[in-house]
Design a binder for these strands. Structure first.
Length: 420
DNA sequence: TCTGGGGTCCTCGGGCGT
DNA sequence: TCTGACGCCCGAGGACCC
């Protein structure tokens, strides 16, 4: 039996934990640079604000209806997520942290009759210890657990945020209710294709022929079909497995033309990638650098390019990754364009312990010592306090974050004060 | 003026060796 | 030596997720 635990309106709920006065009030949380809406409380959803709404186009609606607007505060959300996941891991032998606000739990040989009691207990503990409301869906497969969770969320009065699919009747009922586009793994394109042939619900999808699904769609959709039929094809994935790609990409607050500014940005992104690599004890063997102009500005000439640099040796040194990234940047940079976004992605990742030494070129061994010291200082003093010399220390590259809440739980200076 | 960031997996087609 | 069939590997692109 799988359970999918999902935090309700996670970012909005995090903002509420330290601001109980916001309970019952509409809240939206914005993306980096305060660009678009990435989370909404139920009250905000009721105003018809869609996911991804462009913030400035809704400014009037926000003001008129006293909707509380927050810049995204990842220090707060990351910390709250870790607390929730830590609590959840106490309830099941296996946990897969699927995203910042979701986790799968697997219960072996459990007594189905007691599942509802267990679910209530999980809900109570998480709510009491963190203040975050959650919904739980139980089912024999991960895809059905997702569906069960959706039902729990959709009908909170009836389900109390808990739904268990433990009989075939309940499974069929759920599948008939679930629209095809709401099935986990069926996105915009596929749902349109399926609707064109008359498949409107998850149940309709399960009525298709296996061979047809595999031939006309792919093995992914066939697996999905089996999952919906109650035959597990997806297993729990190890949480904390090293990533295969690590990216650091940002949109800029303005459009920039000068190479020197892009060099500084790319070098900083490369350095952060190095830090992430060292954190998971990995090295990369290839680095991709990309540049984009602002695609929304139809009045300006557009340019978008990327380049992959194969490193001559595996490395996780921020200095070396930045050097390779800058060499790549020099190859793709063209003047006369206004750039809005750039990024560095480290690829072909291998474990640090399995470094293959090359005959001719190797990672500078002095860097390892230096990077360890740099990471330690940054851990103790706060992120990005110690940087490479080419990073512009005089300029603070701040994202537009005009409505940032305090880092209540991770920064002593911003900790909440309780008045007696 | 202003439109996010970070991942995964699969398919397809070309190059290449047998 | 040439040719076709086949399988493997790899990169690009597309689909999906939060």
């Amino acid at each position: 039996m799988f359970a999918l635990v999902d935090c309700n309106n996670f970012y909005a709920s995090c903002e509420r934990v330290f601001r109980p006065d916001l309970n019952g009030k509409p809240i939206v949380v914005l993306s980096n640079n305060d660009g678009c809406v990435i989370a909404r409380s139920n009250e905000a959803k009721a105003f018809g604000i869609p996911m991804g709404a462009v913030a400035y186009q809704y400014e009037e609606l926000f003001t008129k209806n006293n909707i509380q607007v927050f810049s995204s505060n990842y220090a707060l959300y990351g910390d709250m997520s870790a607390r929730v996941m830590n609590l959840l891991s106490q309830f099941a032998p296996e946990i897969e942290v699927y995203s910042i606000d979701e986790a799968f739990l697997q219960f072996d040989k459990c007594d189905y009759i007691k599942l509802d009691e267990e679910a209530l207990k999980i809900k109570r503990v998480v709510s009491k210890s963190t203040g975050i409301p959650i919904s739980l869906g139980f089912a024999p497969t991960k895809t059905l657990a997702k569906a069960a969770n959706r039902i729990a969320k959709k009908f909170p009065e009836r389900t109390n945020g808990i739904h268990i699919i433990d009989t075939d009747e309940k499974r069929i009922k759920a599948l008939k209710w679930l629209a095809i586009e709401d099935v986990w793994g069926i996105g915009r394109r596929l749902s349109q294709r399926l609707r064109n042939i008359g498949v409107k619900t998850a149940f309709d999808f399960t009525q298709l022929n296996d061979d047809w699904v595999k031939k006309k769609m792919s093995i992914v959709e066939l697996r999905l079909k089996h999952e919906l039929e109650g035959k597990p094809t997806l297993s729990m994935l190890a949480t904390g497995a090293p990533k295969q790609n690590i990216a650091t990409t940002r949109s800029f607050d303005h459009n920039y033309k000068e190479l020197s500014i892009l060099q500084e940005r790319v070098s900083t992104f490369a350095s952060i990638c190095g830090e992430k690599l060292r954190k998971q004890k990995s090295c990369c063997n290839a680095i991709m650098i990309f540049l984009h102009t602002n695609g929304h500005r139809k009045d300006l000439p557009q340019y978008s390019q990327n380049i992959i640099i194969k490193t001559p040796f595996p490395t996780n040194s921020s200095i070396e990754i930045a050097e390779f990234a800058l060499a790549g940047l020099a190859k793709i940079y063209k003047d006369n364009y206004y750039y809005k976004k750039a990024g560095v992605v480290v690829m072909d990742i291998t474990p640090e312990s399995k470094k293959q030494f090359s005959l001719f070129a190797n990672s500078n061994p002095k860097h390892a010592v230096l990077m360890t010291a740099m990471d330690k200082l940054n851990r103790n003093m706060g992120n990005q306090k110690v940087k490479l010399a080419r990073h512009d220390l005089g300029r603070t590259w701040k994202m537009k974050q005009e409505r940032l809440s305090p880092r209540f739980s991770t920064n002593l200076k911003e900790i909440i004060t309780v008045m007696a």
